[in-house]
């Protein structure tokens, strides 16, 4: 077994293994590879789902902008070969909001971690969802602050161990789908990175739907959260997702809490229509101002 592999190491020229045309590479800034993510980290798997979703979608890649905050997940903006911006910690949504208002034709995607989006950036999240801004928010939930050493996050399950909760967290975590729905998101789903095909399909749906669309992507942080809670490695985490997932499309989001070792309810929970911030603004100002209303140039032909 190892012999045939050894041959490829000692004799790279005759090695049959090359990687010139991995289909994901056209979506990556290959000059930035290898990436910083640890072995078995789920962020890379989520990126595979994302790039395949864009390929499959009707979106023009020149029109997509990807915005991240700070964290291991925040690195995604720097690795994808798309227009991108790596904002300060927690501020992906304010940046994305400004970008969308200035350039409504751009498909704005926020790709960030649970800490970035729901701890320091939580206030921005609730208002972006409330306004129904046209954007897709993809959150890698690895249940802790990966980048800074595994501190407790607003998503850390009750009684789980983090670097700042050595005896277990006693806080009740956010149930992200319930939060997103309550605040006004028109599309809400949760998948784990074990569910690659379902996640790909869901990301595509979210990208193509107008309004504020949100997907929670449950992923392992094997170096910190998984190890500290003695759950094995990244592979063991994916196997536990396979075992614990309960696929329930249309589930009541109030029943989607995540606990240690408990069921992981996955599926598409919300898919409704509601006027977006931009279209609502235009319709209302036209009504109250009549001919005096002048639509911003960048909005012409884009916002109905």
């Amino acid at each position: 077994m190892s012999e045939s592999y050894e041959a490829t190491v000692t004799d790279p020229v005759s090695a049959p293994m090359t990687c010139d045309s991995n289909p994901v590479e056209e979506w990556l800034r290959m000059d930035r590879m290898p990436h910083i993510w640890c072995p078995g980290c789920g962020i890379g798997t989520s990126v595979n789902c994302f790039t395949r979703a864009i390929e499959e979608s009707s979106l023009d890649r020149k029109n997509i902008a990807i915005v991240s905050g700070i964290g291991c997940t925040g690195r995604v903006a720097g690795y994808l070969l798309l227009d991108s911006f790596h904002t300060t910690h927690g501020r992906a949504l304010p940046f994305a909001t400004g970008l969308k208002l200035a350039s409504p034709k751009t498909k704005v995607v926020v790709y960030s971690g649970d800490g970035d989006l729901f701890a320091i950036g939580g206030n921005h999240f609730i208002h972006a969802a409330r306004r129904n801004l046209d954007m897709t928010v993809l959150c890698v939930n690895n249940f802790n602050y990966g980048m800074t050493g595994g501190q407790v996050a607003p998503t850390t399950p009750e009684f789980a161990i983090a670097s700042t909760t050595p005896y277990g967290s006693v806080e009740r975590p956010f149930n992200l789908p319930y939060l997103a729905q309550s605040c006004g998101a028109v599309y809400v789903a949760r998948w784990t990175v074990y569910h690659v095909k379902q996640l790909q399909r869901s990301i595509r749906e979210a990208l193509e739907k107008p309004g504020f669309t949100f997907i929670e992507m449950v992923a392992p942080c094997p170096t910190l959260f998984v190890r500290r809670n003695r759950l094995g490695d990244g592979l063991a985490a994916l196997e536990s997702y396979e075992e614990n997932a309960v696929i329930k499309n249309g589930a009541d989001t109030r029943e989607c809490d995540l606990g240690m070792g408990g069921p992981i309810v996955c599926g598409k929970f919300v898919d409704i229509d509601r006027p977006s911030y931009l279209s609502n603004q235009v319709a209302h100002l036209r009504k109250v101002l009549g001919d005096r209303y002048v639509m911003p140039d960048a909005w012409q032909g884009v916002v109905q």
Partner: peptide
């Protein structure tokens, strides 16, 4: 089927159907 490439967090592997080049629409 391409699932290996879809799972690989390090973009280090990919599978492709024989008889044609991998395209952007593949898994």
């Amino acid at each position: 089927c391409g699932l290996c490439g879809m799972y690989c967090p390090d973009f280090a592997i990919y599978g492709v159907k024989n008889g044609r080049k991998p395209e952007s629409g593949d898994l």
